[in-house]
Design a protein around this nucleic acid. Structure first.
Lengths: 95, 95
DNA sequence: TTTATACATTTAAATATTTCGATATATTTA
DNA sequence: TAAATATATCGAAATATTTAAATGTATAAA
Protein backbone atom coordinates (compact mmCIF):
# COMPACT_ATOMS: atom_id res chain seq x y z
CA UNK A 1 0.00 0.00 0.00
CA UNK A 2 1.12 3.58 -0.53
CA UNK A 3 0.66 4.92 2.97
CA UNK A 4 3.66 7.09 3.73
CA UNK A 5 4.78 5.05 6.69
CA UNK A 6 7.24 7.18 8.56
CA UNK A 7 7.85 7.90 12.24
CA UNK A 8 5.01 10.44 12.34
CA UNK A 9 2.57 7.88 11.06
CA UNK A 10 3.73 5.27 13.58
CA UNK A 11 3.49 7.85 16.34
CA UNK A 12 -0.05 8.81 15.38
CA UNK A 13 -1.27 5.23 15.16
CA UNK A 14 0.42 4.26 18.42
CA UNK A 15 -1.03 7.27 20.19
CA UNK A 16 -4.48 6.45 18.86
CA UNK A 17 -4.14 2.93 20.30
CA UNK A 18 -2.79 4.29 23.58
CA UNK A 19 -6.14 4.77 25.32
CA UNK A 20 -8.32 2.05 26.84
CA UNK A 21 -11.57 3.43 25.47
CA UNK A 22 -10.16 3.64 21.99
CA UNK A 23 -8.86 0.07 22.19
CA UNK A 24 -12.31 -1.08 23.31
CA UNK A 25 -13.96 0.87 20.50
CA UNK A 26 -11.66 -0.82 18.00
CA UNK A 27 -12.42 -4.25 19.48
CA UNK A 28 -16.15 -3.62 19.34
CA UNK A 29 -15.97 -2.58 15.70
CA UNK A 30 -13.77 -5.59 14.95
CA UNK A 31 -16.60 -7.87 16.09
CA UNK A 32 -18.94 -6.48 13.44
CA UNK A 33 -18.89 -8.15 10.07
CA UNK A 34 -19.19 -4.79 8.34
CA UNK A 35 -19.87 -1.23 9.46
CA UNK A 36 -20.71 -0.21 13.01
CA UNK A 37 -23.08 2.67 13.66
CA UNK A 38 -21.82 5.61 15.68
CA UNK A 39 -24.85 5.45 17.98
CA UNK A 40 -23.98 1.86 18.88
CA UNK A 41 -20.57 2.98 20.09
CA UNK A 42 -22.05 5.86 22.07
CA UNK A 43 -24.50 3.47 23.77
CA UNK A 44 -21.68 1.11 24.62
CA UNK A 45 -19.75 3.38 26.98
CA UNK A 46 -20.49 5.55 29.93
CA UNK A 47 -18.98 8.61 28.30
CA UNK A 48 -20.48 11.79 26.91
CA UNK A 49 -21.34 11.68 23.22
CA UNK A 50 -18.82 14.43 22.57
CA UNK A 51 -16.09 12.39 24.22
CA UNK A 52 -16.86 9.35 22.07
CA UNK A 53 -16.88 11.58 19.02
CA UNK A 54 -13.43 12.86 20.00
CA UNK A 55 -12.05 9.33 20.49
CA UNK A 56 -13.51 8.03 17.25
CA UNK A 57 -12.08 11.02 15.42
CA UNK A 58 -8.60 10.18 16.64
CA UNK A 59 -8.99 6.66 15.31
CA UNK A 60 -10.21 8.01 11.98
CA UNK A 61 -7.39 10.59 11.86
CA UNK A 62 -4.87 7.82 12.37
CA UNK A 63 -6.56 5.92 9.51
CA UNK A 64 -7.36 3.03 11.82
CA UNK A 65 -11.05 3.47 11.05
CA UNK A 66 -12.81 4.15 7.77
CA UNK A 67 -15.98 6.20 7.98
CA UNK A 68 -19.02 6.88 5.85
CA UNK A 69 -22.08 9.02 6.23
CA UNK A 70 -25.43 7.28 5.88
CA UNK A 71 -28.05 9.97 5.98
CA UNK A 72 -27.65 11.51 9.39
CA UNK A 73 -25.86 8.48 10.74
CA UNK A 74 -22.14 7.86 10.73
CA UNK A 75 -20.69 4.40 10.47
CA UNK A 76 -17.21 3.02 10.96
CA UNK A 77 -15.18 -0.02 10.08
CA UNK A 78 -11.61 -1.21 10.54
CA UNK A 79 -9.09 -0.06 7.96
CA UNK A 80 -7.32 -3.38 7.53
CA UNK A 81 -4.71 -2.05 5.13
CA UNK A 82 -3.31 0.35 7.70
CA UNK A 83 -3.14 -2.41 10.28
CA UNK A 84 -1.21 -4.42 7.77
CA UNK A 85 1.30 -1.61 7.29
CA UNK A 86 1.60 -0.99 11.02
CA UNK A 87 2.16 -4.66 11.76
CA UNK A 88 4.72 -4.80 8.99
CA UNK A 89 6.60 -1.94 10.60
CA UNK A 90 6.50 -3.66 13.99
CA UNK A 91 7.60 -6.97 12.54
CA UNK A 92 11.00 -5.45 11.88
CA UNK A 93 11.60 -5.48 15.61
CA UNK A 94 11.05 -9.22 15.81
CA UNK A 95 14.15 -10.22 13.82
CA UNK B 1 5.26 -16.08 25.90
CA UNK B 2 2.75 -16.09 28.70
CA UNK B 3 2.45 -12.32 28.85
CA UNK B 4 -1.02 -11.48 30.11
CA UNK B 5 -2.04 -9.55 27.04
CA UNK B 6 -5.01 -7.50 28.02
CA UNK B 7 -6.20 -3.98 27.20
CA UNK B 8 -3.91 -2.46 29.83
CA UNK B 9 -0.91 -4.12 28.29
CA UNK B 10 -1.86 -2.97 24.79
CA UNK B 11 -2.45 0.53 26.12
CA UNK B 12 0.95 0.65 27.78
CA UNK B 13 2.83 -0.63 24.75
CA UNK B 14 0.95 1.67 22.39
CA UNK B 15 1.60 4.66 24.62
CA UNK B 16 5.28 3.78 24.81
CA UNK B 17 5.41 3.73 21.00
CA UNK B 18 3.47 6.98 20.80
CA UNK B 19 6.43 9.35 20.96
CA UNK B 20 8.88 10.14 18.16
CA UNK B 21 11.96 9.99 20.37
CA UNK B 22 10.97 6.62 21.73
CA UNK B 23 10.33 5.28 18.23
CA UNK B 24 13.78 6.49 17.18
CA UNK B 25 15.36 4.92 20.27
CA UNK B 26 13.72 1.62 19.39
CA UNK B 27 14.92 1.85 15.81
CA UNK B 28 18.47 2.62 16.89
CA UNK B 29 18.52 -0.36 19.24
CA UNK B 30 17.02 -2.53 16.52
CA UNK B 31 20.09 -1.83 14.35
CA UNK B 32 22.42 -3.30 16.95
CA UNK B 33 23.13 -6.99 16.75
CA UNK B 34 22.99 -7.28 20.52
CA UNK B 35 22.85 -4.83 23.41
CA UNK B 36 23.04 -1.06 23.06
CA UNK B 37 24.73 1.02 25.75
CA UNK B 38 22.70 3.71 27.49
CA UNK B 39 25.41 6.30 26.84
CA UNK B 40 25.14 5.67 23.10
CA UNK B 41 21.45 6.53 23.20
CA UNK B 42 22.10 9.66 25.26
CA UNK B 43 24.72 10.82 22.72
CA UNK B 44 22.32 10.21 19.88
CA UNK B 45 19.73 12.84 20.80
CA UNK B 46 19.70 16.49 21.69
CA UNK B 47 17.85 15.85 24.94
CA UNK B 48 18.90 16.01 28.57
CA UNK B 49 20.22 12.75 29.99
CA UNK B 50 17.34 12.69 32.46
CA UNK B 51 14.84 12.93 29.63
CA UNK B 52 16.40 10.02 27.76
CA UNK B 53 16.39 8.03 30.99
CA UNK B 54 12.69 8.76 31.34
CA UNK B 55 11.91 7.69 27.76
CA UNK B 56 13.97 4.51 27.99
CA UNK B 57 12.26 3.67 31.25
CA UNK B 58 8.87 3.86 29.61
CA UNK B 59 10.04 1.42 26.95
CA UNK B 60 11.37 -0.92 29.63
CA UNK B 61 8.17 -0.57 31.68
CA UNK B 62 6.17 -1.59 28.63
CA UNK B 63 8.50 -4.59 28.23
CA UNK B 64 9.55 -3.40 24.79
CA UNK B 65 13.17 -3.28 25.96
CA UNK B 66 15.13 -5.68 28.10
CA UNK B 67 17.79 -4.15 30.29
CA UNK B 68 20.88 -5.31 32.14
CA UNK B 69 23.41 -3.60 34.35
CA UNK B 70 27.03 -3.95 33.31
CA UNK B 71 29.07 -2.41 36.08
CA UNK B 72 28.03 1.20 36.15
CA UNK B 73 26.65 1.02 32.60
CA UNK B 74 23.15 0.09 31.54
CA UNK B 75 22.43 -1.68 28.28
CA UNK B 76 19.26 -2.39 26.39
CA UNK B 77 17.95 -4.67 23.69
CA UNK B 78 14.65 -5.34 21.97
CA UNK B 79 12.26 -7.73 23.69
CA UNK B 80 11.22 -9.66 20.61
CA UNK B 81 8.70 -11.83 22.43
CA UNK B 82 6.60 -8.85 23.44
CA UNK B 83 6.63 -7.55 19.89
CA UNK B 84 5.43 -10.92 18.81
CA UNK B 85 2.53 -10.79 21.25
CA UNK B 86 1.65 -7.22 20.34
CA UNK B 87 1.69 -7.97 16.62
CA UNK B 88 -0.44 -11.04 17.26
CA UNK B 89 -2.98 -8.87 19.05
CA UNK B 90 -3.01 -6.38 16.18
CA UNK B 91 -3.29 -9.10 13.57
CA UNK B 92 -6.80 -9.77 14.81
CA UNK B 93 -7.84 -6.48 13.27
CA UNK B 94 -6.67 -7.57 9.83
CA UNK B 95 -9.23 -10.34 9.32
C1' DT C 1 -41.82 23.87 7.62
C1' DT C 2 -41.30 23.17 12.25
C1' DT C 3 -39.40 19.65 15.36
C1' DA C 4 -36.60 15.78 16.62
C1' DT C 5 -32.48 13.03 15.90
C1' DA C 6 -27.58 12.02 15.11
C1' DC C 7 -23.16 13.69 15.10
C1' DA C 8 -19.55 17.25 15.07
C1' DT C 9 -17.30 21.26 16.99
C1' DT C 10 -16.07 24.63 20.44
C1' DT C 11 -14.63 25.89 24.90
C1' DA C 12 -12.83 25.15 29.22
C1' DA C 13 -11.40 22.50 33.20
C1' DA C 14 -8.95 18.50 35.01
C1' DT C 15 -5.32 15.44 34.33
C1' DA C 16 -1.20 13.49 32.20
C1' DT C 17 3.12 13.84 29.74
C1' DT C 18 7.37 15.91 28.38
C1' DT C 19 11.40 18.18 29.49
C1' DC C 20 15.28 19.81 32.10
C1' DG C 21 18.19 21.18 36.04
C1' DA C 22 19.57 19.62 40.32
C1' DT C 23 20.58 16.00 43.08
C1' DA C 24 21.11 11.10 44.45
C1' DT C 25 23.13 6.53 43.88
C1' DA C 26 26.15 3.15 42.49
C1' DT C 27 30.46 1.75 40.42
C1' DT C 28 34.98 2.28 38.81
C1' DT C 29 39.52 4.41 38.95
C1' DA C 30 43.30 7.10 41.01
C1' DT D 1 39.26 6.71 50.63
C1' DA D 2 38.33 10.38 47.23
C1' DA D 3 37.25 11.73 42.67
C1' DA D 4 35.21 10.68 38.34
C1' DT D 5 31.73 8.47 35.59
C1' DA D 6 27.17 6.56 34.36
C1' DT D 7 22.60 6.42 35.19
C1' DA D 8 18.33 7.23 37.99
C1' DT D 9 15.22 10.09 40.53
C1' DC D 10 12.95 14.38 42.08
C1' DG D 11 10.64 18.74 41.45
C1' DA D 12 8.86 22.15 38.64
C1' DA D 13 7.47 24.40 34.36
C1' DA D 14 5.66 23.91 29.72
C1' DT D 15 2.77 21.41 26.82
C1' DA D 16 -0.62 17.95 25.42
C1' DT D 17 -4.57 15.01 26.23
C1' DT D 18 -8.93 13.78 28.13
C1' DT D 19 -13.45 14.87 29.26
C1' DA D 20 -17.92 17.05 29.20
C1' DA D 21 -21.31 20.85 28.68
C1' DA D 22 -23.02 23.80 25.39
C1' DT D 23 -23.76 24.76 20.89
C1' DG D 24 -23.85 24.03 15.79
C1' DT D 25 -25.20 21.51 11.59
C1' DA D 26 -27.31 18.43 8.68
C1' DT D 27 -30.93 15.12 7.88
C1' DA D 28 -35.34 12.91 8.69
C1' DA D 29 -40.02 12.85 10.47
C1' DA D 30 -44.31 14.89 11.63
Amino acid sequence: MNTKFDIKKVEKISKALGDPYRIRIMEAIKQEQDWMQCATIVDMFNLAQSTISHHVNQLVDADLLLTEKDGRNAKYKINKEVFNDYVQFLNNFKF
